[in-house]
Each structure stands twice: as structure tokens, then as C-alpha cells.
């Protein structure tokens, strides 16, 4: 008499070969861990610097550009900030002044959307201070969102190294 195995087939466990899969999975895991790098996000500040020839035909701006002057010490540190003729103590001051002049850029036609900032920096000034100044004039955080101020930012004609020595 034949012994039938069919009755017991359901109970039999199917053996899967786990080893190759786990090998590969761990390899992948190790690859991703090794290539993992925490990067802080980077963002851009847009500045538009049309050519000198083009700026002659540019429509006149209703508000003359706010001139921000950044002075540098001998080692490139920030020695002084002024807005127009007025000396300021910090970038917080600068932001407050800009806010007082233009107000937040809430509508497309508002003063802040029209206004323009011209940065006039010493040759040797460390670049991070320029970014600080741009941050101060271009907006601020309030209630978890960015309130934009002036977005039109340009550089004054560069000062040369000789200027820095003379001044």
C-alpha cells in the first residue's frame, strides 16, 4: 500500500534561503550608511546686476536706492555699518531702519517691493558680513514664516585694494 504524503504536505515548512538576501541587504545598508552625510540646506540670495549699458535705459526707480555702507577693519572684520549717512550699531539696527523706511513687502506694489538696496563694501571685508547685511535687508522671521523686505539688492562699484589702504 502506498503511503500518501499529501495529507501532511500543508504542515511542512518551506525553507527559504535567507542568507544571500541578508548579505545583500546588509551590503546595501552599509553602503548607504557610509555615504550618508548630514548636510545643512543651502539657499540663494538673488541679486541682479545688469550690465552698465543696460542700466542707462532702465526705468527710473521711484525711491533712490538705500545705500548700505560696510566698513572693514584691517583683518576683514566688520568695523562699521551705515545706512545713507547714518551710522548703525548692528544688523538688527539696520533691519529696524529698513523696516521703518519701507515696511514689509506684502503687496506687489508696496514700497519694499519697489525699493532697492545698494551695498557698498570695503575690499577686504569678510564675505560673511555681506550675507549678514543681505539677510538683514531682505526679510525677517516672524510667526514661523519669512516676511520679505527688500528683494532688489545690488552692489556698488567695487572698491579697490588701494581704497582700503587709503581709507
Amino acid at each position: 500500500m502506498k503511503i500518501r504524503h499529501s495529507g501532511r504536505a500543508g504542515e511542512e515548512k518551506i525553507e527559504l534561503q535567507m542568507t544571500p538576501m541578508i548579505d545583500i541587504v546588509f551590503q546595501l545598508l552599509i553602503f548607504f550608511i557610509m555615504t550618508f552625510k548630514i548636510v545643512q540646506l543651502e539657499g540663494d540670495f538673488n541679486i541682479k546686476m545688469p550690465l552698465a549699458a543696460a542700466s542707462d535705459v532702465a526705468p527710473p526707480v521711484s525711491i533712490p536706492p538705500l545705500k548700505v555702507r560696510l566698513r572693514a577693519g584691517d583683518d576683514g572684520s566688520l568695523a562699521g555699518i551705515s545706512l545713507g549717512e547714518r551710522a548703525l550699531n548692528s544688523f538688527t539696527d539696520l533691519r529696524a531702519q529698513v523696516m521703518a523706511i519701507v515696511g514689509p513687502a506684502t503687496a506687489p506694489g508696496s514700497a519694499a517691493a519697489e525699493a532697492e538696496v545698494e551695498l557698498d563694501c570695503d575690499y577686504g571685508l569678510h564675505y560673511e558680513h555681506v550675507i549678514e547685511a543681505i539677510t538683514a535687508v531682505s526679510g525677517y522671521y516672524s510667526g514661523g514664516e519669512v516676511i520679505p523686505l527688500i528683494q532688489n539688492i545690488k552692489f556698488a562699484p567695487p572698491r579697490t585694494e588701494q581704497d582700503a589702504e587709503a581709507g
Partner: peptide, 30 residues
């Protein structure tokens, strides 16, 4: 770089302007 000289950044911008590049984005870390 954060301690690069601003004058040099401006020279780079000027060199780009000489080749008719007009739009610039200054990159900073969040």
C-alpha cells in the same frame, strides 16, 4: 567662503558681467 574678501567676490561678479552674465545667486547655508 565666509572669510573670502568681498572685493574678490565683486571682481568675480564683474568678470561674469564682462561675459554678459546678469543673474547671480549668492549661496549661503541655512
Amino acid at each position: 567662503d565666509r572669510s573670502a574678501k568681498t572685493g574678490i567676490v565683486q571682481e568675480v561678479i564683474q568678470a561674469c558681467q564682462d561675459q554678459q552674465f546678469e543673474k547671480f545667486a549668492l549661496r549661503a547655508k541655512q
